[in-house]
């Protein structure tokens, strides 16, 4: 009797819960089964301005678009696996990006959550590197010639 009354009272809620559960589970499964990236590079944007292009196949050929906001660092300071390292000026604090065989990582950031740092090395679009605090995000790209699509930068400042 109690169960019947409960069902009558909460039938709409139960249906809503299972519809949402089905939709979100399906979305999560799709997300987990999606193909991983075969990107050859990545653009680093801050406030819709492309600051830097990281060339993953040849880190030394990365491109700095905003010289006053990006500084090349000595990669050996960050360990043997690091092939190139850059410090960029985020909206609020500086961030250090590094390239290794495993992909791209944020080595340090002044953001309180440290979520971007906790991702470690990644090339996986299912784990997009986003730092909301610094307004920074990373977009993977296939070819260096195809970028930067939404950059308001006037052009290339320096090729390292």
């Amino acid at each position: 009797m109690k169960a019947k009354a409960f069902l009558q009272k909460h039938l709409g809620d139960i249906i809503l819960f299972f519809v949402l559960l089905f939709a979100t589970t399906l979305g999560t499964i799709f997300l987990l089964l999606a193909p991983t990236s075969s990107a050859s590079g990545a653009n680093i944007f801050c406030d819709d301005v492309c600051l830097l292009y990281l060339n993953l196949s040849s880190p030394q050929e990365s491109v700095i678009y905003e010289e006053e906001r990006v500084k090349e660092l000595d990669p050996s300071l960050y360990g043997e696996e690091v092939e190139a390292a850059y410090e960029i000026e985020g909206a609020l604090t500086p961030m250090v990006f590094a390239i290794s065989q495993e992909g791209i990582a944020v080595l340090s950031s002044g953001c309180p959550s440290q979520y971007c740092v906790s991702l470690g090395y990644t090339l996986d679009p299912r784990k997009p590197i986003v730092c909301a605090y610094n307004h920074v995000h990373v977009e993977y790209v296939g070819e260096i010639a195809s970028l930067p699509p939404s950059s308001s930068s006037s052009g290339v400042d320096i090729i390292v």
């Binding site: 944007f45 986003v130 307004h135 995000h137």
Partner: peptide, 9 residues
């Protein structure tokens, strides 16, 4: 605000 659809992942 970040002009990226990547966060929808």
């Amino acid at each position: 605000l970040l002009s990226t659809s990547g966060v929808f992942w």
